[in-house]
Design a binder for these strands. Sequence first.
RNA 1: UGGCCCGUGGUGCAAUUGGUAGCACGUCUGACUCUGGAUCAGAAGGUUCUAGGUUCGAGCCCUAGCGGGCCAGCCA
Length: 568
Amino acid sequence: MAETTEKPSLNFIEQIIEKDLASDKWGGRVQTRFPPEPNGYLHIGHAKSICLNFGLAQKYNGSFNLRFDDTNPIKEEDEYVEAIENDIRWLGYDLDGKVLFASDYFEQFYDHAITLIKKGLAYVCDLSSEETREYRGTLTAPGKDSPYRNRTVEENLDLFERMRAGEFPDGSKTLRAKIDMASPNLNMRDPVMYRILHAHHHRSGDKWCIYPMYDWAHGLEDSIENVTHSICTLEFENHRPLYDWFLDQLGVFHSQQIEFARLNLGYTVMSKRKLLELVRDKHVRGWDDPRMPTIRGFKRRGYTPSSIRTFCERIGVARMNSRIDIAVLENCIREDLNKRAPRVMCVLDPLKVVIENYPEGQTEEMDAVNNPEDESAGSRKIPFSRELYIERSDFMEDAPKKFFRLAPGREVRLRYAYFVTCTDVIKNDAGEVIELRCTYDPATRGGDSPDGRKVRGTIHWVSAHHAADIEVRLYDRLFNEENPDKTPEGKSWLDAMNPESLTTKANCKLESSWIEAANAVSWPDGINRVQFERTGYFCVDQDSSDDKPVFNRTVTLRDSWAKIQSKS
RNA sequence: UGGCCCGUGGUGCAAUUGGUAGCACGUCUGACUCUGGAUCAGAAGGUUCUAGGUUCGAGCCCUAGCGGGCCAGCCA
């Protein structure tokens, strides 16, 4: 195995770029861009695109533009442009204050349209939208020419000017490219370039009442910005001939469009329309609901920017439609948080334990390591006393052999504290366990037995009188179907929603040391993340207040006991 | 009885562009462990969609078939 020359396997886009660099196609330049429409929040699929485009520019010493593709005033709002910028910055990409808008190019688009009209390659059409559809033909049948197709250049020029001037009502006229109504590619059947829309634009205001269509505008945006590699998703593949046609006819700088497969993640949806519907109809609490696959959702859930970047690199770039297993993302966040998150003990489902042979009213300070993966994180003191809480699931009355935790007569270690043995089980009238009686071995202080006695289990705990009451929100997949987009006959994708995607635990008990040190732990994005030992990674939610801290579970720890259980 | 694109272990991607397949995640073993975490070591798992063809040699090229995706907004 010769591993001296590790060849850096390139994805297909990198291969194209390196070939272009070798042939000096673009004079050594690499210019990419990310062109969101400001009509919604960014999701993890957009993160893939941002990482790709930004990463390529970085890798090849090129540059990257954030450009808002704001050509439809009806759907676009400033709220979204701010949100998108924030999300991109949070992801860790510095924009250098350079933010571009397609709407700034409207005048140039207009001039180019005039050029096309003069070349006899565009005409004003009076067909209604329904008529336009009828004339377009179908996938298998060719379309037919619009009766307005052969207007003279002079007439077209005049009409187009008057369209801009606002002489005609919405929908009454369009400017269309004159290409080929019989093309097997429907995009080439005289596509609409401009529609009349007397609408207020979030940036250009009321200056325009005609707005360019995507196909007409997009290539020009790329051309104006001298974009070399215009990377978009697969559904634009059929549009490439048109993209090329416009730029060719105009003879302007011709960027190369390259398509890749968009990201699909298991057990969630990624379309803007569906995400919007989830928010609008209150199936989730908002765009930043921790169950949402939006950037803000992941942020609020406790994901780190670097974990998302790692994820985007790990999933690769290709042209095959695929669906990524959510486990890959979870692995990325665990990997990051394992190294960075301070540990703390928190009991999610408290069961009271009384240490019968421990002096009443006594409290001891136990030493606890803050992060075994990071020595510099230091250690802390945690209070131990006679009355404690442990996790209800850490006790079993009839425990199987493989259960290494507490059970009648069994001894376990309370992490960083003592060995305890369960001596009695107290139940209520309904037969439910409400309290445990235990004895402790004073010789095991700190968690080791001088006689060399071993225990299989170590469980977490908190001192009852010292613990803070907190609320914890546990999240699960938003959908029960791996692919909610594929709904069975007569069902809606909403039927696939998981009714248990959010579980709120109102009476959790958190180690008091964390409350005291809370603000000492600072993460660059201001989100406070911790590991609750043995249960998972959590972060402080924005709903938190001093008297009622609220935590979100980012992701569980890998749990081999759960695996053993699910097998039986 | 349309056009374009895609088919490699369970999943996602590689394979020096024609020299008989590698990585990651997942799965399973074992070691270690004061988190049933982390870490470490190892294993299983692929007739590269099918059938032909070209070639000394095909995951890579050609043909046909099968399967999947996208397209009939005055959305992007």
